[in-house]
Amino acid sequence: MLDSLALLRAMNGIHEEDVIMAGNMLFHKQKAKHFKTNRILTIALAAALIFALGATAYAIYRGSIHARVPEKGTTEYHLLSGTDSGASTELLHVDFAKTKLALSFDVPADGLFPVMRAAGLPGEESGWRKESFYEMLDKAQYFGLPWEMKLLSPDQVQINPEQVPEDRLREADMDTETAKSWYTNYLYRGPGGELLRIDLYGGYRLHGKEVILGAFAPEDTKAEAVKEGTFGEYQLVEVRMSYPDGRAHKHLFLFHPEKYWLLQISCTDDLADFSVLEKLAEGIEIRETGLSAKSYEDKIDYILADLA
């Protein structure tokens, strides 16, 4: 019977040169220093690769952003409900067998709290439906939290306080006026649901977590990473999810390998091409507030998820 103990014993098969190399690291300080030097050299080589082979080579080299099909199994996670816009967290069981795609990132536990805002959104962009991008923005509405923006199409309207459903007010553990104000920020009405959503995740929200796509999607949902590369200082992954009923969503991920920011821009498939989402990304400004992540949000521990 193969168990972890047998596997640990079988590590004896690791070649002697590899054992010696690691042993030198473990038992000889001067060797460790040498390895760190090697790391610097390696980084320098990577930089050379960027120039020599271009951005794609660097993205492949970095390897810190990657898409994978998760292992089967069931694990407990705190899941942020996309439809509740972060108003609540739920403890759910995610069956990875049904998960279509997961992205994981190497990020530290701590970090500063970043915010984003639309700045200089591309007015010249056209071809987004029949209207220019900027014209559409004029009619659209933004709302959301500092780390989240939603762009609603003209046929969707954010509700006013008097439109908050009674049952929501009853469920809320707060006074009526506060509840109205709260839900006004989180509810909207209109056909089709939200069309475009932009989320920013700081490293502290990604530490040890994964961004899961299609956790509850039907089995024959398809997830495809259609593009990987670099985007300015960011690493880029573009994913298209298509569902059995014909619907599809686009997801654009931009990961900053030094700041540990992850920007996710998602939209319904027919709304825009990835090139439009990239244009949109160019116009988003992200900055650090100086607030530590812990001081801002120290009680929420969830895995990031998209329930598309």
Partner: peptide, 21 residues
């Protein structure tokens, strides 16, 4: 199994191999 693991580890990138060992 030992032989397989030895071959597997030897093909890992250096830093990854180091950490695994």
């Amino acid at each position: 199994l030992e032989k397989a693991i030895g071959g597997f580890v030897s093909r890992l990138p250096e830093a990854e191999r180091m950490l695994f060992v």
